[in-house]
Design a binder for these strands. Structure first.
Length: 392
RNA sequence: GGAGGGGUGGGUGAGUGGUUAAAGCCACCAGACUGUAAAUCUGGCGUCCGGAAGGGCUUCGCAGGUUCGAAUCCUGCCCCCUCCA
């Protein structure tokens, strides 16, 4: 817990794929790194001990949600985010920029910032780059993010440009506010590249954001409805333009296959709600793809959900038992599934790291992807479009 | 023995003459979930044909009747429940 400054060391590269280490005031973390999501200062359903047990090194929380409830001051007075949620390791907070996308009709963007109507009580809040930065300073995470405007897939070129240029101006503002805020010196600030699915704008944004000396650089605005080809293509394109000596963070990704593909294209850090969210609905990762443990075919399976998994659930319970827990809507079911999915992706990252260090990531990737069966892409797209329509 | 209430699709339960293949909920089946407004959402759920639009057939305890038309009204029968004796 000594106040060291943030640092990144690149240990080894295997093609574009990198293995490294970040250093934060609350300890180190090995990269490639997957950060479990703890939006409301908790990885839903799990204790910090359980998150650590499955291999979690850094968790991600959300400044927008914590600002609304319980409030930045409250968290601050209760020991800061680390003390409040009792997570002793590194924490990264997102600024609330993603909520500019996900909150649908409850928000309205302008050059000054984004107006949100609280989903809790309807009250109106105006997030500016300054407020978003100071909120995160107040929460006291190890790594904080610039306030950006994440725009929906399908936006016009004009809309994407406006959001991107706004994001660039806000990035400079966030950097200035953070520098002058009196934040403790170890706290890192990452910039975020936007630009939608327009190749030229992605380059433009990469150049604009890297012109500011952030501690790390994130690829934002992806995994919001575009197809896999675009996700991977823009990830690779942006990563190639980011500095070698800073960590690169692909925001909001991933699924197991996306993690492999992201690292393959030079990404060091990921966060994603997917593993824990789908777990609560019965979906569990296996080396062959995602299964739905609540399906009847698991009703009598004596072995664990994933034979090769070393998580608590797979070590102690049959798939039939987990199946029963979901059928009966028992809370232990979603806890076991959450632990399992986190363990699955975290162990995947550990194995990826080993493979990179041993210069065999290409074959690791090939083997993993040839076995892992992704979920239906067409259905994904349909679902996403409907969701986007509902959210306005 | 007397008084009253009720039998609806797998369950529960609306529906009292046409807009009802019959609400809602549950169960079940299928799909989704990527910087978490999510232990959530979407679709299906009598049967047959169709990719779909749509169309055919059979349904509201049983049997009969009234009516252009019945889950809904009438008659009989069977069964269940509550209270009184």
């Amino acid at each position: 817990m000594t106040a060291s400054t943030f640092a990144f060391q690149l240990q080894h590269a295997d093609g574009p794929a990198r293995a490294g280490r970040i250093q934060t005031p609350h300890g180190p973390a090995a990269t490639p790194l997957f950060m479990p999501v703890a939006t409301q200062a908790t990885v839903k359903g799990l204790t910090p001990e359980e998150v650590a047990e499955v291999g979690g090194q850094v968790v991600l929380s959300n400044a927008y949600h914590l600002y609304l409830r319980p409030g930045v001051e409250t968290v601050n007075s209760l020991g800061g985010l680390h003390g409040f949620m009792r997570w002793p390791g590194p924490i990264l907070t997102d600024s609330g920029g993603f909520q500019a996308f996900s909150m649908g009709s409850l928000r309205k963007a302008s050059d000054e910032g984004i107006r949100f109507r609280s989903h809790l009580d309807g009250s109106e809040h105006h997030f500016t780059p300054e407020l978003a930065t100071l909120n995160q300073v107040g929460l006291g995470a190890d790594i904080i993010m610039c306030f950006d405007q994440c725009i929906a897939y399908g936006a016009t070129e004009k809309e994407v440009r406006r959001a991107m240029e706004r994001t660039h101006r806000w990035a400079a503002e966030c950097h200035r506010v953070h520098r002058d805020s009196g934040a403790w010196p170890g706290q890192a600030l990452f910039g975020i590249v936007q630009g939608g699915t327009f190749s030229g704008m992605r380059d433009e944004s990469t150049e604009a954001i890297t012109a500011i000396p952030f501690d790390g650089y994130a690829v934002g605005g992806l995994a919001v409805g575009e197809d896999k080809e675009q996700l991977y293509g823009f990830t690779g394109q942006v990563a190639a333009g980011l500095p070698q000596d800073k960590p690169r963070y692909l925001m909001g990704v991933g699924s197991p296959e996306d993690l492999v593909e992201g690292v393959w294209r030079g990404i060091d850090m990921f966060d994603c709600a997917l593993p824990t969210r789908v777990a609560r609905n019965g979906a569990m990762f296996t080396p062959d793809g995602r299964i739905d443990v609540s399906k009847r075919r698991f009703a009598e399976q004596q072995g664990p959900v994933d034979e090769g998994c070393d998580c608590y659930g797979c070590s102690n319970y049959s798939a039939a038992y987990v199946h029963h827990l979901f059928r009966a809507r028992e809370i232990l079911g979603l806890r076991l599934a959450s632990m399992h999915n986190l363990r699955f992706v975290l162990r995947l990252m550990e194995r990826i790291r080993e493979a990179i260090l041993e210069d065999r990531f290409a074959s690791f990737r090939r083997d993993f992807l040839s076995r892992y069966r992704p979920t239906n892409e067409a259905a994904r797209q349909e679902h996403k479009l409907r969701w986007l329509q509902e959210r306005g």
